[in-house]
Design a binder for these strands. Sequence first.
DNA 1: TTGAAAGCGATACCAC
DNA 2: GTGGTATCGCTTTCAA
Lengths: 335, 335
Amino acid sequence: MVTINDVADAAGVAPSTVSYVISGKRSISPGTRRLVEAAIRRLGYHPHAGARALASNRTNVLALVVPLRTDLNVSVVMEFVASVAGAARMHGQDMLLLTENDGPAALQRIASSATADALMVMDVEASDARLPVLAALDRPVVLIGVPDAPSGLTCVDLDFSAAGAACVAHLAGLGHRRVALLGPPPAVYERGTSYATRFLRGFGEEAGRREVHTVTRECAGSYETIDAVLDELFAREPGVTGLVVHNEAALPALLAGLRHRNLRVPEDVSIVAVCPDSMAGQSAVALTTVAIPAEEIGAQAVELTMRHLGGHTTSEVRLLSPCLTIRDSTAPPPA
Amino acid sequence: MVTINDVADAAGVAPSTVSYVISGKRSISPGTRRLVEAAIRRLGYHPHAGARALASNRTNVLALVVPLRTDLNVSVVMEFVASVAGAARMHGQDMLLLTENDGPAALQRIASSATADALMVMDVEASDARLPVLAALDRPVVLIGVPDAPSGLTCVDLDFSAAGAACVAHLAGLGHRRVALLGPPPAVYERGTSYATRFLRGFGEEAGRREVHTVTRECAGSYETIDAVLDELFAREPGVTGLVVHNEAALPALLAGLRHRNLRVPEDVSIVAVCPDSMAGQSAVALTTVAIPAEEIGAQAVELTMRHLGGHTTSEVRLLSPCLTIRDSTAPPPA
DNA sequence: TTGAAAGCGATACCAC
DNA sequence: GTGGTATCGCTTTCAA
C-alpha cells in the first residue's frame, strides 16, 4: 500500500507537506507542489480513508436512509437515490445506503461509530418513530419529507399542499366542477405519511375556494383495485370529469381502465398526475403533471447537509414550489 | 465520544480485553464478559469505524456499483440494490453505493483508499472498459453479469441463454410455430450488454432445435415505438402467435397495443415475459414469466464477496438456472 | 514555506 | 484468561 510517507520520501519532503498539498490548508511553494503532485500521480497514491477519518474526524461519507417497501414507487425512490448520489459526488462525498428496515439502531450505529458524517432520511412519516433518535444524534440530519414536528431538524420537500391546490386550480380553470382525487393506497395514510395528508389538505382547500365538488379514493396500483374503484366512482359520482392522481403506480391501470370503458382522455376525462416528469411520457397520452422534483430535492438535501457540516447550525424547513406542466391529458370538460 | 478506553475503565479491564470481548477472538471469562458488555451498553459504545479500519484493515463496507442510465429498467436495478443491501447487512456489512458515471477512477479510489473492502459491479458489458481496472485491484471484485472474458473475476448472473431457450421451449410445447422476440432497445445491444446477446443465443438455438420460426425486434419502451413495431411485425409476419418480451419497460405499451388491435392475451397471442416475478401481476393479465431473480443474485453476489474476503481465492462464474412460471398469458395458439 | 512529532481509537502481538 | 503496548496512516499543532 502506498502511504503518505512513501509520497513524502519520493518527493523529498515531509509527510505533513504532502498532507497540506492535498488539503490546501496552507500555502505551498509552486516547486514543492509540483514535486509532490508528481509523486502522488506516479505512485498512484490515495489517502487511506480510515486513517483520515481517525485523524480528521471526517469520513466524507453521507448516509442516505431509503425506504424499500414494496407499496411505494421504486422508480421515484430510485430517482432520489440517483440525484443524492450525484450531488454527493459533486461535493466530494461518497454515499452509504441504509435501508430503513435496519431500524433506528442502525442510525445510532452509523452516527456513533463515525461511519458517516451526516444522515439524510427519506420518506419521513408525520410522527416518525425515528425522530427522537435522529434529533439526539451528534451529527447533522436532513429529512426528505416533513414530519408534523421537525424537532429542530432540517427538512426539504415538495410543497405538497401547494401541489394539491395547483391540481385543483388547473382543472377548475378549465371549467371542471366535479373532481376526484385518486390517492395513495390506504397503507400510506395509515403510516401517517405526511405528504399524503398535506396534499389532501391543499387539494381540499383549493376546491373549497373554487367551489369545486370533490371526492377522494385511496387506491392500490393493481388492475383489480383500480377497476373496482372506477366502477364505484362513476356509479356514485357520475358527473366527475377531472381526475387528480397522486399515485404513480396506479397510472397504467387507470389509463387502461378508462380506455376499456371508452372514456377518452382528455375529451371525456381530464387527468392531472403527481409524479416525476420523466413518467409523463410513459403512457399513450402525455400527462399533465405536477412534477415531483426528485433531482432538485436530492440536490438541496445534499447542499443543506454540507452546509451543516460546514458549521451552519440553524435548521430550516425548505418547501419547493410545485410546477404544473400542461400536456395532453387535460382539457375543458365535455359540454 | 465514547472510546474503547472509556469502556475499559468503566468495566475495570484493559482496552484489549474489551476488543476481544467484541471480536470474540479469544476466550473471555463469563464474569469479565458480563462486566464489559454491561459497560458497553451503559455507555452506548460503538467502535470508531475509521480507527477500526486503520488497525484491522477491514471496513465492513461493500461497494456496489450501479448503472443509473435511464434506458434500463430502474425497478429491476432497485431490486438488486435492495437485495444486496439486505444480504450485506446479514453479513454485518454496510453498503456504499457508487454510480457508474463516476467512471473507473472512482473504483480505483474506493479500492486504494480502503473505503470499502470489496466491490460488486452491476450491469457489466460484454467487453467492459472497467474490467482491466477491476482485475488489477487489490481487493475482491464480484461482477453481477458476465463479460466475454471474466479475466479471473467472479461473476453471478441468471443463465440468460437457458432463459431464452426456456421461453421458446414453453411456447413450442404449447404448439406455437412462429415466435417473435421483443428485445431490449438498440442501445443495449450497441453497448454490448452481454445478457442481451446471451438471451438471443439461447432463444435462437432452442428455436432451431424445435423448428420454430423466429423473428426479433429491438424496441424502446415508448408507446410510439411499440406501436410501430407491432404494426410492422403483424404486417410482415402475420403468422406470429407467440411473443417473448425481454424488455420490462415495453410491457405496458405492448399490452395496450395488443388490446387496441383487439388481440386477446392469451387467446390470440401468447406472451412470455422476462422480468422480476413481482412485475408479473402489474398488468391486466397475469404474465407467464421467466423470472429475473434479483433477490437470489444479490444474495449470491454478497456471499461470494464474503467468501473472497474470508480468504477464498478461486474465482468462479455462477449462472443461476432460469425458472419459468406459467400464468395467464400463455396458451396454445388459435386454431 | 517547511518539518517534527503528538495524537486520533482501534487491533493484535507479546508477556504473564 | 488478562494486560500492556506497538502499530495502522493520516492531520494538525508547534517550532523553526
